[in-house]
């Protein structure tokens, strides 16, 4: 198992419902990843900008950390934990 910092902007489809955001799938390096499970989520603030963080899993065992910037409304793939 190893962590890799990525920091790439990604395209992401999410469901905004009842004041919560649920990421559904994202495109990274021309490949689409369907999110199967949200392991956990948390929020952080830097100055006036609020960031929404998600730890998600797709069809494989790897874990992806995604961040939504509430100010720029952009999604980032922060890092990946590669299993095996």
């Amino acid at each position: 198992m190893r962590y890799e910092d990525i920091g790439d902007r990604i395209e992401l489809i999410a469901l905004f419902r009842d004041g919560r955001i649920r990421p559904l799938k994202f495109r990274w390096r021309d490949r689409v990843y369907r999110i199967q499970r949200v392991n956990g989520e948390w929020v952080s603030d830097q100055g006036q900008t609020r960031f929404y963080h998600y730890s998600v899993m797709t069809t494989g065992p790897d874990v992806y950390e995604l961040t939504y910037n509430g100010d720029t409304r952009a999604w980032l793939l922060d890092r990946v934990c590669l299993i095996g």
Binding site: N39, M57, I83
Partner: peptide, 13 residues
């Protein structure tokens, strides 16, 4: 526990 929850691969390690 939070780290294990956010990365299930950590469980048992």
């Amino acid at each position: 526990a939070i780290e294990e929850r956010d990365n299930p691969a950590l469980r048992g390690k």
